[in-house]
Amino acid sequence: MKTLIKIKPKDYKVGDIVKVDFMAMHPMESGMRKDKDTGQIVPAHYINEVNFLFNDKMLTKMITWESLSVNPVLTISLKVSGAGTLKVLAKDNKGDNVESSVAITPKG
């Protein structure tokens, strides 16, 4: 699972509310789709938990299901309280764990 975190806008100050986009490259198989070549049902494979931590403190916890689109983008808000690290831990139902992080550096 490849992941990417984006903070919008790029320039922000302490006290601003920014948007955090978490993107993951993931097939998000629903477990209901049939493979066109083999006729077999493709087993479910989806991200089931995403945790956002700011300076190791829980910011947002998400339980997700197979109804999310392929390569999901999850957007939340963050009130910038100071400099620090935003860490995102994502898990899927096959046990794949990915940790990614981005530095929060407010200007001024």
């Binding site: 509310i17 700011f54 999850l74």
Partner: peptide
């Protein structure tokens, strides 16, 4: 700490 209740 989210500052705003939004999700997309």
């Amino acid at each position: 700490a989210n500052g705003e209740a939004s999700f997309a």
